[in-house]
């Protein structure tokens, strides 16, 4: 089924005869390399590009029995449904709100931690701290949320401590008000250490002469940080912030899916989880695909826009 996806060789015409022959010669010369690339090419065609043709079901009323092209064509009907469905609007709001919280609270913390690590002069101490703070990045979300649940459930460690000092237990996992703070807190715990790596690399590139000059001028450590360190990593911060803004519609699928329960579904459901529930659990393939496509297209525009912005800021851009 992948074979017919191959771009067929262009039909020879009199004018392009020589070009065609050149192409054939090139193909012949590179045949070993192309053979080597075959698994990779097939992978991208089947699992990345074939699904893009499957997006056609966002424009019809797909039923598995009538197939991709046999189902009733509804044009933009599914998309109109997106904006009249209050549940979808709520889900979009949740997605943006969680992303906003991540950017405000989880984004700056690795910068602060990187500055703190950079100020450590004892290399052994620095290495030990780094070893510990990078570790959570390599744990699965099931493990991180599992530990979180064990600590926060009604008879978990935190509530036992609260009760033992005479305070009432807090329903962290069932009260929807705690859902978003918990999501952000888990991301901070898991990814802060890992997030420092890129800033530490930028900090390592700062010219030490600048600090010497600053000390000569009588600048203390705070002023050195403010006037030398931060300006030298400004471009890294701006690039990463802009990229983060480009992915505001991604709010951590696996994490949120695992944290959802009947109590918090209203505040916690985001675009990705919504697509899962609609498409996989309720088999409303067309509507779920339309929501996914909407997210994909807006995401693409945001990333391109973010990249454009980065270039406007005089940075190199990423793509």
């Amino acid at each position: 089924m992948a074979a017919d996806l191959y771009p067929s060789s262009p039909a020879p015409s009199a004018a392009s005869q020589t070009r065609f022959q050149k192409l054939r010669k090139r193909l012949h010369k590179d045949r070993a390399l192309l053979l080597l690339a075959l698994p990779g090419i097939l992978y991208f065609l089947i699992y990345k590009y074939l699904p893009m043709f499957g997006l056609v079901i966002a424009f019809n009323d797909y039923s598995p029995f009538q197939g991709f092209f046999g189902s009733e064509w509804v044009g933009l009907g599914q998309f109109r449904k997106i904006f009249s469905d209050t549940e979808v609007l709520r889900v979009i709001w949740n997605t943006l709100f969680i992303s906003f919280l991540q950017i405000v609270f989880a984004f700056p913390i690795p910068i602060v931690l990187a500055l703190m690590l950079n100020a450590v002069r004892n290399q052994l101490y620095k290495r030990i701290i780094q070893t510990v703070v990078y570790l959570p990045h390599f744990l699965s979300w099931v493990v991180v949320i599992g530990i979180c649940v064990l600590f926060l459930k009604s008879e978990g460690l935190i509530n036992e401590i609260l009760k033992s000092i005479g305070l009432p237990a807090i329903p962290f996992l069932t009260d929807p008000a705690y859902f978003k703070p918990l999501i952000v807190g888990q991301v901070i715990w898991k990814e802060t250490g890992w997030g420092t790596i890129i800033f530490l690399a930028a900090l390592a590139g700062v010219n030490p002469n600048l600090y010497e000059a600053a000390v000569m001028d009588g600048a203390n450590r705070w002023r050195q940080t403010w006037h030398i360190t931060l300006p030298s990593i400004r471009s890294t911060i701006i690039i990463l912030l802009i990229l983060r803004l480009g992915s505001v519609l991604d709010s951590g699928f696996e994490q949120i899916w695992l944290m959802l329960n009947p109590f918090n579904k209203d505040t916690g459901n985001v675009l990705d989880t919504f697509v899962y529930f609609k498409g996989i659990e309720q088999s409303d393939y067309s509507f779920a695909t339309a929501v996914g496509l909407f997210k994909g297209v807006v995401g693409l525009i945001l990333v391109m826009g973010a990249n454009y912005l980065a270039k406007r800021f005089g940075e190199e851009g990423v793509y």
């Binding site: 699992y47 990345k48 699904p51 499957g54 695909t289 996914g292 994909g296």
Partner: peptide, 10 residues
């Protein structure tokens, strides 16, 4: 990317 559902169908 095409998203979850088309990939699932493939």
């Amino acid at each position: 990317s095409a998203g979850m559902i088309p990939t699932y169908l493939v």
